[in-house]
Design a protein around this nucleic acid. Structure first.
Lengths: 347, 347
DNA sequence: ATTAGCACTCCCGCGGTCCGAGTGCCAGGG
DNA sequence: CCCTGGCACTCGGACCGCGGGAGTGCTAAT
């Protein structure tokens, strides 16, 4: 890690803050005026020259001011940044969202909207991997003779459902019985284990299985063995907020970015990465490793249920974002979400 | 309705087709060449002059070619357009989507993605209003002593669910009994009627109601009486496709358009409008009545279940879209969706 | 009635100029 | 020795004028 004189640090900090605020390359004169520095523009120029040699700032062209590089932002975030507490009105918006007494799944999904609204950036949320949550119970419900609605409930209150067309009609009591047996057989396992159990059970010949349980297994398999149980959902909101940033609105970058949002693949990897460690994480520009996120930063924080990390919330915006505010908003949102989930699930 | 000479019609048709294909103002010379007309550019200019007086075309400035006006598109769509059958590969994509045996709700929601993918425009889908569908059954499921999962199933296989915190703990058998009584009391009504019934039942003093049913009503009310039952969902996909059109990418229009997509209010009204009559409907530019849709056209078609219109699918794109292809794609999608829904629900 | 010709208009791209902002460097002063 | 004022330099952006090209409208001739 580079080390700077206190003065240089102070200057870099002022420069980055100014650039974040205005979005324009900042020159020595404006920097002196704006930051109230007690030395002259010429001195500032010398220091800037040093900072440029260190790769912390650069100038777009000869006679423009300086702009932070990704390294500059990184240094800024690591060493210079004073995270500001979330502003009261923002805090109020966030807390309001947690007051509404809704089911956990919806609460989690609403986080992306909340974050985008408060930060004026794009909000993202990675919902818990279904495969890991516990199986609670399953129900078969006859919609018509040929159609059965399969409802699967997890221990954290998620509900998955799907309509299937069984091979033969079943009576309501048969279905009830089948569900009871199924629930008895698979209670308490994780969804992933249930799914593997289903595949296993179907491969073995069915002779050693009661006919009614076999029917249940078949129907459950038909409904949920596919990707439905292991799909990896990710929600993005407020993409339009990004249109407001001129550095992104040059269409080509924007297009790639929005396509990355709909493809979700890359984002998913990134968010999974951020699930391994606790606390707020920040990916600046190329650090994310995805081209589509060039000149963007991602700020994430995992949330947990009963001490176990299950998902991530965060925001995506231009590298030029107000890290000091964004970080605290993401952090507090993740914390409150963790609290709300743990409370509502065990309360 | 204006009437034109056959020659003028032919010319207008060629001009609009050319403009749709290229997106550039088209002049007399290129028009003659491209459309293989047997008269000279000068004649074309005279006719164009007439068309301009009629308000069907206009020129952006003196020495540019001509561009269709909204009236021009309208006339084109009404009188000149020969709808082309959906191309085989597109047809294949569409049919593929209906082969996957999934639940109706998901199938409907996937239509917006399908349409955006096939037409390279933004796809929209209005899902059925929940208030109108029939109530099938309701279940209470204890997640923990303090939390009850309420699952509501409609006759068309939709599942709504929400976690509530009842006033006192209930045993599993109490919950079962409550659900049974509730289902007996409200079976067959529409969701809207159920909701009104709930409010009514709570307002009456509870003495004339069995205690256990009263508990069920309270819990059901807690879970679903809010907007959950009457919310009006609308799905939009492929917004990024619109970035490819230069006439929209001027940022300000695009921004408003995308905001209209997230606000959904205006779109919803528009789609509700299109539910009153059968078949494909086309709103060109200002015809939609919403400023955000300026210089955009919307092509919609309602879909039905058992002869009853329940929702709408469609696309949104620039007024300069290939109506001939888009119309047939939207039409066939709506038809196939109607077929799939009627089949899967009664089959 | 159609067409060829022609003058006209306007957009667009090009090169040139000017101006301002900002830099780098140097010499002088605390 | 470090800071600072001064100065020459560079570069981008706005402005301007010009010419070419595309397209039109009009008119006269067929």
């Amino acid at each position: 890690m580079v080390s700077l004189t206190p003065r240089a640090e102070r200057l870099l900090k002022a420069l980055i803050e100014q650039y974040i605020a205005e979005g324009q390359p900042v020159g020595s004169r404006t920097l002196v005026k704006q930051a109230g520095l007690e030395f002259s523009p010429a001195t500032v120029r010398n220091i800037m020259s040093d900072l440029e040699e260190l790769g912390l700032i650069q100038s777009p062209h000869t006679s423009a001011g300086r702009v932070p590089t990704e390294r500059g932002y990184r240094f800024f975030v690591n060493s210079l940044l004073a995270v500001k507490p979330t502003k009261a009105p923002d805090m109020a918006s966030i807390e309001d969202r947690f007051l509404a007494d809704q089911d956990p799944q919806q609460l989690i999904e609403s986080m992306s909207g909340l974050l985008s609204q408060v930060t004026k950036l794009a909000g993202i949320v990675r919902v818990p991997r279904r495969a890991d949550v516990g199986f609670l119970q399953l129900d078969f419900l006859a919609l018509s003779p040929a159609r059965v609605l399969v409802i699967l409930v997890t221990q954290d209150g998620q509900v998955l459902n799907r309509v299937i067309h069984p091979k033969r009609p079943y009576s309501a009591s048969e279905l009830q019985q089948a569900a009871n047996m199924f629930n008895g057989a698979y209670a308490g396992l994780s969804l992933d284990m249930v799914r593997r159990g289903l595949v296993e059970a179907l491969r073995r010949d069915s002779e050693d299985m009661q006919q009614i349980l076999r029917s249940a297994v078949e129907m459950a398999h038909q409904a949920f063995a596919g990707e439905a149980m292991s799909e990896a959902p990710l929600f993005v909101s407020g993409e339009t907020n990004l249109l407001a940033f001129p550095e992104l609105s040059n269409t080509e970058k924007l297009r790639r970015l929005l396509e990355a949002f709909t493809a979700k693949q890359d984002l998913l990897h990134l968010l999974d990465q951020s699930m391994v460690s606790q606390g707020v994480q920040i990916f600046i520009g190329a650090e994310s490793g995805y081209e589509a996120l060039e000149s963007c930063s991602v700020v994430t924080a995992p949330y947990e249920v009963d001490g176990q990390i299950v998902g991530t919330v965060g925001v995506i915006g231009p590298t030029r974002m107000s890290y000091d505010h964004v970080i605290s908003v993401v952090d507090v949102t993740a914390r409150l979400l963790s609290g709300a989930l743990s409370h509502s699930l065990s309360g």
